[in-house]
Design a binder for these strands. Structure first.
Lengths: 111, 111
DNA sequence: TCGATATTTCATGTATTATGGAATTATTGG
DNA sequence: CCAATAATTCCATAATACATGAAATATCGA
């Protein structure tokens, strides 16, 4: 992961609608969601949603697949893992106790 | 953590200079760094850096303390933990194996 | 107190980004 | 093939973010 790639990922998430979309897809898991379902779920105009989805795809945080007349979107867990890793890389400054809470909380989120 | 708070945090990190500043402070650990040291380290104009630091402070990701004629900045590990937690909350969609890699990688970053 | 260093504040021009309307492409069912 | 549904693209406008120059504030050492 390099600086501009990470910035693109963070920028993609740094907008309320897109953050909601991403979290929705993260929670939806491997099945993903159709664009229309997302639009209804978050009350977004279809064209606005398309633009936001495109930004998330460009950042590599989600992927799309056409299924019949729907387009299914899915979050990419690998991408978010890399992004978070880049964020807190070498976070301890030589003191493991400083970032221990971080790993602890993340274990919980997967229960 | 709520939507707009998370968005503010992500926006703060979604800019190359600020992301570099934040990572520098994360790696510096509890001692933190003086504004001038950061400016030199990243070759940023002092006033530009101040604006960026202010945004990171507003987002709650870093804190400042005056020490003599310097102002020391430090990253807040708690804040980034909460932000990341919000990002991947309920990330499994009922399938723990999906987000297992995430927690694994984060353990490593603390070694 | 005075000069030097460190940092911040203010004002401004420029560029990027978000949003919504209208038209377009893709797919299914009759 | 035609109508309906799903999603996207194009385009214009409005809002926001960024970097820079100049001035101001705070602290230290002589």
């Amino acid at each position: 992961m390099e600086l501009l790639e990470a910035t693109r990922g963070l920028s993609a998430l740094a907008q309320p609608s897109r953050l909601q979309v991403f979290r929705l897809l993260i929670q939806a898991g491997p099945e993903g969601l159709a664009a229309g379902d997302i639009a209804r779920s978050l009350t977004l105009a279809p064209n606005t949603l398309t633009a936001q989805l495109h930004i998330l795809v460009e950042a590599g945080l989600i992927h799309s697949e056409r299924l019949g007349r729907n387009v299914i979107y899915r979050a990419d867990p690998e991408a978010i893992t890399q992004l978070v890793t880049y964020l807190v890389e070498d976070c301890c400054g030589g003191r493991p106790e400083v970032c221990a809470p971080l790993s602890a909380v993340l274990e919980l989120s997967c229960s």
